[in-house]
Design a protein around this nucleic acid. Structure first.
Lengths: 264, 264
DNA sequence: ACTTAATAGTCCATAATGTGGACTTTGGAG
DNA sequence: CTCCAAAGTCCACATTATGGACTATTAAGT
């Protein structure tokens, strides 16, 4: 079984792990939706199992099925539950001003990214004024950790053991989101650690590059990163260093905000 | 087993129904969090089952436990999944202007509510300028259908069979949210249907009253209601009729908006 | 229009998963 | 220090969920 479900001891909780895996898969393909066979391959579940779980999720409003295309998507109940969770986890208010400044100053696209297990999630984004806009990830979009500039910055912060665990877990699905195999990603992470910022130039979408910086990890707070993505030509030196400096300044400002108010 | 899990045939999906019930319970007590025993009574699960499920949810980031108080809450993964679902289900953008107008004109609190299974969920709210603010439900707050003005308007729209099913299901937990028993709620729903709007004067919080109006139900779109809540004295005739008229006008405007753009 | 291929959906005997009665641990109040 | 309530744990057992094999449906090819 090609297991996309967490490998850790799911003692008496297989079904919850599988359910969560299905929901994550649906979230990762929010746009077009997923066919049953997509869900099967993404989660490693058998056909009847995936089907039965999806039907149950639909009954609970956690998923939906397009009657015409048969494709599955996230359901309204998930949005509603998210709303209840938002007061504790929605940091867009705190980080918004930084994104505004980054997008305004660079004229390119600025992203706010957090870690979520083996994935990263884009929480917010701002478009700059430059006429060619690079919009690689939607708000709410999930990616394997490391396949996006912000995401890569988060991966660089992990210790060797954890980093390897993430890469190993994501190995199979890397190519869906990046022109990378496990060693390529390992190399990117290594370079990021020496540079002090994440430089994502794997050209999955050729001609664009991303710069990512993470907030200094704080206990109890989930890992957060800021990034700017643009046409590669616009991120050559000396502009690159300037943008990295701005990212670091904004990251420090946000970290300071968290120092005051509590964020579980 | 006092079953707070959906009664419909959960064929091969008990665990998903139970999981969803736990998540809904956590969402309904988002503020203070829930103790393990609260989860047990709210869901009808045994202690070891509830505990094991919560631990699994925590592993997936769908729940959290306060290390000090041991209380359980919704986790960050739920906010992240909600973000991915938001583009399809977040109607706050469409309804915001109506809430603004209602809050401004009445000077009281305006709510946007949708149905979610046997519950209603508050999606948005606006405070008016009157110095005494009535804030009965938070954004994201869940209530048994009928225990809130908007919620009651939604209940009134259901056909007899469905209405009775909802009331029967919620009977046990009504008193937690309203000074009502099943027949009391039946009567409120009945009155709402004859009046043409929901009038919530069960005084769970004494001295306040709510007026609710639902959008004409449309196929494929989930049920939506608008409501205004205020000190009872401020909702006597002739003001009451004026506010009801405003609610109906805004409901019509929103319904018209939906006519144009699609809403799954 | 007919054949083939691919995907969705269903059935049911089987065993692995999750269950819950009973027990232990923790922590707070008197 | 003792008592009580709540959290957390263990493990024999049977209910639940599993998946191999089958059917139904839809799309594509000639």
């Amino acid at each position: 079984m090609m297991d996309t479900v967490k490998s850790d001891a799911p003692s008496g909780a297989q079904s919850i792990h599988r359910t969560a895996a299905v929901l994550r898969a649906l979230a990762a393909h929010a746009g077009p939706g997923m066919r049953l066979s997509d869900v099967m391959t993404m989660t490693g579940l058998q056909r009847p199992t995936a089907h039965r779980m999806l039907q149950a999720l639909i009954l609970e409003g956690l998923a939906r099925q397009d009657a015409e295309t048969k494709r599955y998507r996230l359901g309204p109940a998930l949005f509603e539950l998210g709303l209840a969770a938002a007061p504790r986890f929605d940091i867009r208010g705190i980080c918004g001003p930084s994104l505004d400044r980054l997008a305004a100053a660079t004229e390119d696209t600025a992203f706010l990214t957090v870690r979520s297990g083996y994935d990263s999630v884009c929480l917010d984004r701002r478009e700059g004024s430059y006429p060619i806009r690079v919009l690689t990830v939607e708000i709410g979009g999930r990616r394997p950790l490391g396949t996006t500039a912000g995401s890569l910055a988060l991966l660089c912060d992990l210790d060797a053991r954890e980093c390897e665990e993430v890469i190993a877990f994501n190995a199979a699905r890397l190519t869906e989101y990046a022109r990378l195999k496990a060693d390529g990603l390992r190399a990117l992470a290594e370079r990021g650690r020496t540079l002090g910022y994440a430089l994502n130039d794997n050209d999955f979408t050729p001609g664009i590059t991303g710069l990512g910086v993470s907030l200094p990890p704080a206990p109890g707070r989930q890992p957060i990163a800021l990034s700017v993505v643009a046409l590669s030509g616009r991120l050559a030196e000396p502009r690159r260093s300037k943008i990295v400096a701005m990212l670091k300044t904004e990251a420090r400002k946000i970290a300071a905000e968290f120092g005051g108010g509590a964020t579980p």
